[in-house]
Simulated assay, not measured.
Amino acid sequence: MLLGTFVPKLDEKGRIILPAKFMGDFANGVVMTRGQERCIYLFSQREFEELHERARQAPVTGKKGRDFLRMFLSGAAEDMPDKQHRVTIPPMLREYAGLDRELTVIGAGNRAEIWDTASWNAYYEATEAAFADTDEEVIAGLF
């Protein structure tokens, strides 16, 4: 499970060093794609394949499903971390997420998310109060 918050830097070649504690999940390759709220989702190769297999079960007749899969899969890129645990974020994904040098990487359970730090801070500030004030069940059976 991927957990925690990390603040790596984006180098001049568009690479980041992945947190060492994530390397058990990412050692056999990663898949990056567009995330929601303009972040980048980072999945292990295995997790992405399982996600894609589930997505393939959706009917192609539903427009929302087609739209989601087109956005999700057309932005996907595979990479293999190097010996320094670096992966290269493709220019299209860097542009999509508005990435600058300062990044925030969060563990989100089955994936990591790569955010521009200013975007993450704005999202966190806007969302934290609602999180603290939650008084109803948001995820069935969680609390």
Rank of each mutant, 00 (worst) to 15 (best):
R38C: 09
M80W: 01
M71S: 13
E53L: 12
F68V: 08
E50Y: 01
S44N: 08
A55L: 15
C39A: 01
G65Y: 07
L51Q: 07
G75D: 08
P59W: 09
C39K: 09
A55C: 10
K63W: 03
L42M: 14
E53D: 14
R70D: 07
R66K: 04
L69V: 00
M80N: 13
D67C: 00
Q36G: 05
L51S: 07
R38V: 06
R46Y: 04
L73D: 04
S74I: 00
G65A: 14
L69D: 04
G62C: 04
E47S: 08
D79S: 14
C39F: 00
L51E: 07
F48W: 13
E47Q: 05
Q36H: 10
L69G: 03
Q36D: 11
M80S: 11
F43A: 03
A58F: 15
K64N: 09
E37M: 06
R70N: 11
R34V: 02
L69H: 06
D79P: 06
R46N: 12
E78K: 06
R54Q: 14
K64W: 04
P59M: 06
R46C: 05
K63D: 07
Q57W: 05
I40W: 12
E47N: 01
Q45K: 12
R34Y: 09
F43N: 02
V60P: 10
R34D: 00
H52N: 12
K64T: 03
S44Q: 06
L42H: 12
E78G: 04
H52L: 15
F72M: 07
D79K: 07
R38N: 15
R38I: 07
A77L: 02
G62N: 13
F48R: 03
A58S: 10
S44A: 12
R54E: 15
I40D: 05
V60F: 15
G65F: 12
C39Y: 01
E47G: 03
A58N: 03
A55D: 10
I40C: 04
F72W: 12
H52P: 00
E50Q: 12
Q36K: 12
Q57I: 00
E49A: 13
T61I: 04
L69P: 01
F48A: 05
E47M: 04
G75A: 09
A55Y: 15
F68G: 07
D67Q: 09
S74L: 10
D79F: 02
C39I: 05
